[in-house]
Design a protein around this nucleic acid. Structure first.
Length: 856
RNA sequence: GGUCGCGUAGCUCAGCUGGUUAGAGCGCUGCUUUCACACAGCAGAGGUCCGGGGUUCGAGUCCCUGCGCGACCACCA
């Protein structure tokens, strides 16, 4: 994730954007508090024994000590952050923003105190937001329990997954139109065990006649749905669970929980209640039942719906602009499919429970006066009651960690000071890169926060990365022990190898599979590439020498050789491909247009284009072709040096965002005017196409010849030391003079890398041999004496000819079909025609080859 | 239950709005230790693009369907 961000920011920096990557950390409320609580437990004490102030002091010390680890790791992977702006959600500056946000929302009527059923973690002893209570499918039981009518005229059977909560039942609801129960509505039932009389009520929304028995027990204090029904029907709401999750007679419970169950854990109580129902002959049956159970996202404890007082943020008004921003393309989400998920969530958004019964976090800026009941919401600490002057006490709760995180895009830039220079310079930002898991927790809320507090979207692009997984596709995690510590990889192969591997393997939104048990194999792509790049650099720098090369513009284009224009054209193509893969940085008019919407940030494609240029084109071909020129003296040597230096300089710049360290080291040594020792490559400019230089394609003829000779050598196992003597026959060439000139110019190159000496239009030796037909029509005749198996060569040619003939027939059929020529786009038809011409020519060549080899 | 996604070479994946003879990395086979690089070079093998229908002049790409996976959401007690 951080490497992705660094690649993007380095790229933009080279494109002359004033690119800021602001690093920082959050205080991770529940997670951090849990760590300290575990430490305390190991020491045999608790936070309550320690007291709030001491606990906070201890946690602060822990964070101070360990909080820098992540920042050190960021430095180790080369993250080019502006460290001077490092932010932390609990810092005084950001805490000020938090209070401001809370008070502003309160002033707008969007923060309120609510009494309702929320998700409660009985281990963390705090409430959780809907997002923090994660679902997971579990096989449990559905218990059918008979509740007798008080008048003993019959009974109703209800179905429940949590029988222990029956002690808090206040009614049984049936659907208003359910024939089975119509006559019972208004009668009362006797709640078993508790022996309390409860009414049978009719409801339409809350009851599904098709589920279970069609009769639902109503437990308003321990079920969100039942709470709603309880509100509708004005029912009492007895609480029978303690915060710790044990059975207890809480508010309004009277003595519903019998003495033998008091203090019993909820799961143990479930078993006991079931046994008691059995003895009372009230248990009808137990069915296996799979359903989703919510768990605490930090400690995995099953959360309990529980009635309590909490602070909430009214979300509907905040969601509106966040929805339209994505709908009208002010913000794009990549990959696009996540937009639907985002929209779906925002459309059904519910109010956000922001209070946590924790000690680690921003304490809620609300003060209560016990004397007069005044509630004060304030930006500043309140010393005395503003109404009666009495003593005040601050709310005990802290805010959800995400309540500070959702302000990040502007709180880190100086907000609430709207005149802050940083805010003016950098808001709105461009990109947010993160994991899909926190799309709701963080991304959606930041967008809502951006509109609520800044009046505009906080960024233009949300890029959701994939997840790093092991070879079994299991997400890497500390607890499973299947993770890879990037620091280990850096120690083994270097930062650049780590970065390259990850970026090259990262398709848009795709997961990356790495084998924690075989780092060597997992990181081979990066290690190999970085080593290759180093070797290219070593060789190239040695050959180019120390003397500063001429700038490309200072070279007379007519002096450039075919290899020069070829590689410069390949460079142009590489630059174009990299630009296309990286895409536009931001929408031109604030709104993404159709073409831009889904383009860009394809980092693996960008990496592949840059890799192909420097490895397969510059190193494999051009570098080889210049060896003799470099060894010679005179102007051609300088031209080759200049082109080499220019191409490598551009290649290093293209690669800098991915492999910043090795490119910097090499780049500083390149004898290009202005580069040397003067500054970072990170501050160099992004390469641009060189429009004035065009290749005539003639170097391709050389590549064809080399490839053909190499294949011949491999096919016939010509000993590596043996030279091949070939003859170029240009009699059938389209441009005989040019062909002759090309091979004359590249004689040395061909001789060296293909170990093949070519005589242009010389006397034939009379030997039979292989004939290689080049695309220009020229023939390369290779007499191979006794080495070549003519029949085999002829057979190969025949097979190729047959294959081509089949494909050509299909193509000709297509071209002869009016359905195609009339309906397909003109450029497609033209391309197919052109292809037909080329294939026909190829067929002609192959035919000649077969005739010349086989004699028929 | 709702929504979305995936199934392409032995493995991990590209293939964007249907239009060259379907690509890359790793792995595999053969040859080469040639003075930048064996973490390399050269050559090569390997794919009925999950199955079945359909639309189209043309489908890996669009539609339907079957099978096999996965993700997210959800107040079925």
């Amino acid at each position: 994730n951080n490497t992705v961000q660094d690649v993007i920011v380095r790229w933009r920096r080279m494109c002359a954007d004033e690119a800021l990557w602001l690093p920082g950390t959050d205080h991770a409320g529940i997670a951090t508090q849990n760590v300290i609580e575990k430490q305390l437990a190991a020491e045999g004490t608790t936070r309550f024994a320690l007291g709030r102030d001491a606990f906070v002091a201890r946690t602060t010390a822990f964070v101070t000590e360990t909080g820098g680890t992540i920042l050190d790791q960021l430095r180790a992977i080369g993250a080019s952050c502006d460290w001077s702006r490092t932010a932390y959600t609990l810092s005084p500056e950001l805490s000020k923003a938090v209070r401001e946000a809370f008070v502003l929302l309160h002033e707008r009527g969007l923060v309120y105190r609510g009494h309702r059923v929320i998700h409660w973690c009985s281990r963390c002893l705090t409430s959780l937001s809907d997002e923090e209570a994660e679902h997971s499918e579990e096989t449990g039981s559905l218990y059918h329990v008979r509740y007798p009518l008080t008048d003993e005229s019959g009974s109703i059977t209800i179905a429940t997954t949590r029988p222990e909560t029956m002690l808090a039942d206040v009614a049984v609801a049936v659907h208003r139109d359910d024939e089975r129960y119509r006559d019972l509505i208004g009668k009362t039932l006797t709640l078993p065990i508790a022996n309390i009389e409860i009414p049978i009520i009719a409801d339409a929304e809350g009851v599904d006649p098709a589920f279970g028995t069609g009769a639902v027990k109503i437990t308003p204090a321990h079920d969100a749905n039942d709470f709603e029904m309880g509100m509708r029907h004005k029912l009492p709401m007895p609480v029978i669970l303690s915060p710790e999750g044990t059975m207890a007679n809480g508010a309004d419970a009277g003595s519903r929980v019998p003495p033998e169950l008091l203090g019993v854990d909820r799961f143990e109580a479930r078993e006991r209640v079931v046994q008691m129902l059995k003895h009372l002959n009230a248990l009808v049956k137990i069915e296996p039942h799979t359903h989703a159970v919510r768990h605490c996202y930090r400690c995995d404890t099953v959360v309990e719906p529980r009635l309590s007082d909490q602070w909430f943020v009214k979300m509907k008004p905040l969601a509106e602009p966040a929805l339209s921003a994505v709908r009208n393309r002010e913000i794009r989400i990549l990959p696009e499919r996540w937009e639907a998920v985002y929209i779906n969530w925002l459309e059904g958004i519910r109010d956000w429970n922001i209070s946590r019964q924790l000690w680690w976090g921003h304490r809620i800026p609300v003060w209560y006066c016990d004397a007069c009941g005044e509630v004060t919401v304030s930006r500043d600490d309140v010393a005395g009651c503003p109404r009666c002057g009495g003593e005040t006490r601050q709310d005990e709760d802290v805010l959800d960690t995400w309540f500070s995180s959702w302000l990040w895009p502007f709180s880190t830039l100086g907000w609430p000071n709207k005149d802050s220079a940083d805010l003016k310079a950098f808001y709105p930002t461009d990109d947010l890169v993160t994991a899909p898991e926190i799309l709701f927790f963080w991304v959606a809320r930041m967008i809502m926060g951006g509109f609520a507090f800044m009046g505009e979207a906080p960024f233009h692009t949300v890029m959701l990365t994939g997840t790093v997984r092991d070879m079994k596709h299991v997400k890497m995690s500390k607890s499973l022990g299947n993770g890879i510590d990037p620091i280990d990889v850096i120690a083994l192969f270097g930062t650049d190898a780590l970065r390259y591997t990850v970026i090259a393997g990262l398709g848009m939104g795709a997961d990356v599979m790495l084998d924690p048990n075989d780092l060597e194999k997992s990181f081979a792509p990066g290690r190999n590439f970085v080593t290759k790049l180093w070797n290219i650099g070593r060789f190239l720098l040695t050959n180019v020498g120390e003397e500063t090369v001429r700038p490309l513009d200072a070279i007379d284009p007519s002096k450039l050789r075919r290899a020069d224009t070829w590689i410069l054209e390949r460079l142009n193509i590489a630059i174009t491909e990299c630009n296309a893969a990286l895409g536009p940085a931001r929408p031109v008019n604030g709104v993404w247009n159709e073409n831009e919407l889904n383009s860009g940030l394809r980092l693996s494609e960008y990496t592949e284009s840059a890799r192909r240029f420097v490895w397969n084109e510059l190193a494999d071909w051009y570098l080889e072709s210049t060896k003799a020129r470099i060894a010679s003296a005179g102007e051609d040597r300088d031209i080759a040096r200049a082109v080499l230096a220019h191409c490598f300089d551009s290649a290093l710049r293209l690669l800098q965002p991915i492999v910043p360290f090795i490119t910097d080291t090499l780049w500083r040594r390149l004898p290009v005017a202005g580069n040397r020792h003067s500054e970072f490559i990170a501050r160099a400019s992004w390469p641009r196409r060189h429009e004035t230089i065009a290749s005539n394609g003639e170097f391709e003829l050389v590549r064809e010849a080399v490839n053909a000779v190499r294949q011949l050598r491999a096919d016939y196992a010509v000993p590596p030391g043996d030279r091949i003597h070939a003859r170029l026959d240009t009699s059938a060439s389209a441009d005989a003079a040019t062909d002759a000139a090309v091979f004359d110019e590249e004689r040395e190159f061909l001789g060296r890398i293909a170990r093949c000496d070519i005589q242009v239009n010389g006397e034939g030796s009379g030997e039979s041999g292989a004939t290689i037909l080049l695309s220009s029509g020229a023939k390369l005749i290779v007499p191979l004496g006794g080495i070549v198996d003519i029949d085999k060569e002829c057979g190969k040619a025949k097979i190729e000819l047959e294959k081509l003939a089949t494909q050509l027939a299909a193509l000709e059929g297509r071209l002869a079909n009016p359905g195609f020529t009339d309906r397909a786009p003109a450029n497609v038809v033209a391309a197919e025609r052109q292809k037909g011409v080329e294939w026909s020519a190829r067929r002609e060549q192959l035919t000649q080859k077969v005739v010349s080899l086989c004699g028929s």
